[in-house]
């Protein structure tokens, strides 16, 4: 299995398209940081303007942690497309190129072959999130220094102390990785259904967009299905920037996303092991 995984990773990282995500992140994050540097904290002040009238705020709130949070909020819509770019090509790319005729006549089970591909897809996803984490937090702290973080969301304001923030962000990126695994699993599943490179990306992003619309639709008739949509749980990472953690919400989200992963992987497996290779 390790040998299979090694070669799947080799193939994945030998393709130009794999690096598009890393290049996009590598360009976007420094660009955002540069904009923040020029703005000189106006953005943070604007966000905190209502608080400043009620509270006396001291210390450096315009710090690397705050920047990292802003970057996460901003990039989270676009990262699924970067993941779909690679995950959606894993099976459809081989079908298009005709290389299943090279690989699937070999004495290796289709299930193991598929698992190796799926693991390689998850590892790529993990690598992309690690790079986003390293660049946003690492560069943010290096340029803007450290400090406390004021996290504001629909449920209120939380002030996280500087000492606790590394663990909060580690947890946040782990949860973000978990939610992006669901995007990768969806794209991987669609990749088994079609035999062209662009289809899985478009279909994945369409599915995510439709689910997001339903998630944020203020209509009573869809309230019942919202808790079961994976898009409802995609921002689970924000739960890690709270104190104390709402473990019930976190566990719910992790389980729902995990169930989607399992369903996408299982359906892909069923389709793939029975698939006639006609290309």
């Amino acid at each position: 299995m390790l040998n299979l995984l090694y070669w799947e990773l080799f193939k994945t990282f030998a393709k130009w398209r794999t690096y598009i995500g890393f290049i996009a992140v590598g360009v976007l994050i420094p660009f955002i940081l540069w904009i923040m540097w020029i703005e000189g904290g106006d953005f943070i002040k604007y966000q905190l303007r209502s608080l400043q009238s009620e509270f006396l705020i001291t210390g450096n709130l315009f710090n690397g942690w705050a920047i990292a949070q802003i970057i996460m909020n901003g990039l989270w819509v676009h990262v699924p497309a970067l993941i779909a770019l690679v995950a959606g090509d894993q099976l459809s790319g081989e079908a298009t190129a005709g290389t299943f005729r090279l690989t699937l006549i070999r004495p290796v089970s289709r299930a193991r072959f598929l698992n190796a591909k799926y693991l390689a897809t998850l590892l790529y996803t993990a690598a992309l999130i690690v790079v986003i984490a390293a660049m946003s937090v690492g560069l943010g702290l290096w340029i803007f220094g450290s400090g406390d973080l004021i996290a504001i969301d629909r449920e209120g304001i939380v002030i996280l102390s500087e000492a606790d923030l590394p663990m909060h962000f580690l947890f946040a990126f782990t949860l973000a990785m978990w939610s992006m695994f669901t995007v990768a699993s969806l794209a991987f599943f669609i990749s088994a259904l079609v035999e062209n490179a662009i289809g899985p990306i478009i279909i994945t992003m369409t599915v995510i967009a439709v689910c997001y619309i339903i998630t944020f639709l203020p209509v009573a008739s869809v309230e019942g299905i919202k808790p079961w949509l994976f898009t409802t749980h995609m921002n689970v990472w924000q739960q890690a920037l709270r104190d104390p953690y709402d473990w019930s919400a976190i566990i719910d989200s992790v389980l729902v996303l995990g169930a989607y992963d399992l369903a996408f992987w299982g359906t892909t497996m069923l389709l793939f092991v029975r698939k006639d290779i006609l290309s």
């Binding site: 070669w7 080799f10 030998a14 190129a97 090279l102 004495p107």
Partner: peptide, 23 residues
């Protein structure tokens, strides 16, 4: 089968390694 297809973005050497490792 039909025509030999390979990972065009890889060298012949790597393609051989991949095919061999599967067997």
């Amino acid at each position: 089968v039909e025509k030999p297809d390979f990972y065009l973005y890889l060298s012949a050497f790597r393609n051989m390694q991949i095919a061999g490792s599967l067997t």
